[in-house]
Every structure is written in C-alpha cells, then in structure tokens.
Design a protein around this nucleic acid. Structure first.
Lengths: 170, 170
DNA sequence: CGGAACGTTCAGTTCAAACTGAACGAACTG
DNA sequence: CAGTTCGTTCAGTTTGAACTGAACGTTCCG
C-alpha cells in the first residue's frame, strides 16, 4: 500500500483524518484557495476539540506563521471559529460545521455578482460596437453583433436558472 | 479615459474586440485556465475569419510558442477548431460558438465525476473509521461518525439537484 | 533536390503566490 | 517587574506555472 507524502510526515494522525485533510486540501485548491487552508479545515472538521496554532502546525507540517494566516482566512470566510481554550489558556480553532451560510455567500459573491457584471459589460460592448461602426465592414459588423447577441442569449438563459439555484439554500 | 495595458500594446484592435479579449481572459483565469488561453478565445470569438498563429500572436502580444500551446488547449477543450486556410496555405483557428457541448462536458468532468469521487471516498473513510475504531475514544468515534454523516447528507442533497442541473442542457 | 515557411517542442527565464524564520507587541505568571 | 508564552507581521526564500527564444522536423514550393 502506497503512502502519501503527508502520511509519512505525520504518523500521529489516524488514516481517516488524514484522508479528510487531503480531500479538503484538494477541494480548496480546486476552488482557488490555498491548499494549506483547506487542509487546516479538514483537520479541524474531525477534531474532537478546538486545536491551537501549534497543534495544527505540527499535525500538518506547516510553520506557525502559515497556520496563523490560514486560520485567519478560514475565520474571515466563516468556515472556522476562534475560541478561547480555558484549560490551556490560549486560542483554539474549531471548524464551522454548518456550511449553508458559507455556501450562500460564495454563491452570491462568485456567481450572482459575476453574472450581473457580465450583463453590464455586454451592454457596454454593444454600445461600443455601434460607436465604432465605421471601423468594421458591414459583414463584419453584422457578424460581431450576431455573436454578441448569441452570448446575451446564453446569459439570460443562465439568469432564468438563478431563482432555481437559490432554492438550493432553503 | 484610462487605457488598459493590452490596448496600449495592440492599437490595431477595435475597442469592442479588445474588451472581449480581456473579459474572456479574466473569465478563463477565474476557471483556473491560463489567462492567455481565454484571451485567444476572446479574440477568435469576434474574428470575421480564422486567424493564424502569427496573427493571434501579434494581436495579443504573445510569442508564437505560447499561442501554439494555447490554441492546442482550446482545441482539446472543444472551444476552438483548426481549419486549413486555402488562400494562405496555412492552418487557422476559429472559435467554436456553440458552447453547449463544452458546458455539458465541463459539467460532467468538473462536477459530476467529482461528486461521484466524493461519494466513493466518503464510504472509504467510513470504512477506515470502523477499521481503526480502537484508536479513538468512544466519544471521539461518535463525533467523527456524526460529522461524516453530516457531510454525506450534504452530498446526497446536492445529488438530488443533479437531474435538475442536467435539465439546463436541453 | 535545396530552401522557405510553418507548427511544435524544449530548456531557460520570469513572476507571483505560498511558505518560512525571525522579530515584535501583548498578555499572563511567578 | 523580569520572564514566558502566544499570536501576528514582515522580509526573504521557495516553488510552480506561464511565457519566451531557439532549435527541430515537416511540408510545400520553385
């Protein structure tokens, strides 16, 4: 059985938790977030109690500095909470398990606003086309307008699906 | 009025086409594709006729090598076609305007398969948990199972939406 | 059968993001 | 009030992706 790089580095973690760390790392990366941030979340997600910066750093083989910024990112994303651990008298981090709100915000920011931008941008482009009509041949102008119109059709089609998508979060 | 870096570099292109280049560049980047690949597509999308590697390279201020690999990527994605231009006796590229098939494949590859992977992975993790049950305390074991079950619930919720999403492409 | 022109490939460079080590301020302890 | 321990910040390093220039093979033309 082949072992991953992580599992070699961190013999202390049970296999299941390591799996979770790796899966979340990959997922984060596919979302354009730093892999380490996802790994931290994966570690926290199955942690029986809040973990301190140093614990996280040791478990994942990261520097405390990286974990500090990574955990900060998670908190600002709403995917982790910072809690004060009485017993150890230091801060700890725990995963936010209810991801509904997080998903909703991601949808709003990454999708909805982007689509609205695209809409405005499309109108702007059509205006520019008319403004500089003389720099195209008639056929070229027609072609461009046709292509842009086609794009606009796709846009409105997607827009029709938005309310449907919103229903996911309910 | 402020001019972008691209427009300075490429005074030959009309503003509307430049807008398209930039928009597609940004969009590609947000999808994790190289910006230049998106720019090439944006350029081709409003081109009145197929463009050669050299034309594209000059328009976008890229090297022929970059355009060669970029265009190859577009073709392998199904977003561009390679056509032989008789008049010039060389290859040209044109944008694939019907993006339905492309979107469908993206959905299949990036989403559906990922979700199925996640499903398999989840079962594997639950199996591992049971296999190494002795390395957890009872409460810890219960917590992990609860967390994983929660994840599984989210997964199946998303899975219920899949047929709905498929209806988009019809 | 030379010789262009074209497209691809490859080694090297550039550049930005991620990570680290070290220094710093703050809070607590004895 | 000295001395820890924490968490953050910052400058410097590392790393990987994107891009380039140059070399290469191929095709087509004279």
């Amino acid at each position: 059985m082949e072992e991953s790089a992580l599992s070699k580095a961190l013999p202390g973690l049970p296999a299941a938790r390591l799996d979770m760390v790796e899966a979340c790392g990959r997922f984060a990366q596919s979302l354009g977030i730093a892999r380490s941030v996802g790994e931290i979340y994966g570690l926290l997600y199955l942690a029986p109690r809040p973990m301190t910066l140093d614990e996280i750093a040791q478990c994942l083989g990261l520097s405390k500095a990286s974990v500090s910024t990574g955990a900060r990112q998670l908190v600002s994303l709403g995917a982790a909470r910072r809690v004060f651990v009485r017993a150890a008298r230091k801060d700890g981090y725990e995963a936010v398990v209810e991801l509904g709100e997080l998903a909703r915000r991601a949808y709003e920011n990454l999708f909805k606003s982007r689509l609205q931008n695209a809409d405005a941008h499309m109108n702007e482009m059509l205006a520019k086309i008319e403004a500089e009509k003389e720099s195209y041949s008639p056929e070229e102008h027609a072609l461009i307008v046709e292509r842009l119109t086609r794009l606009r059709a796709i846009q409105s089609r997607i827009k029709m699906l938005l309310p449907l998508a919103e229903r996911i979060f309910s």
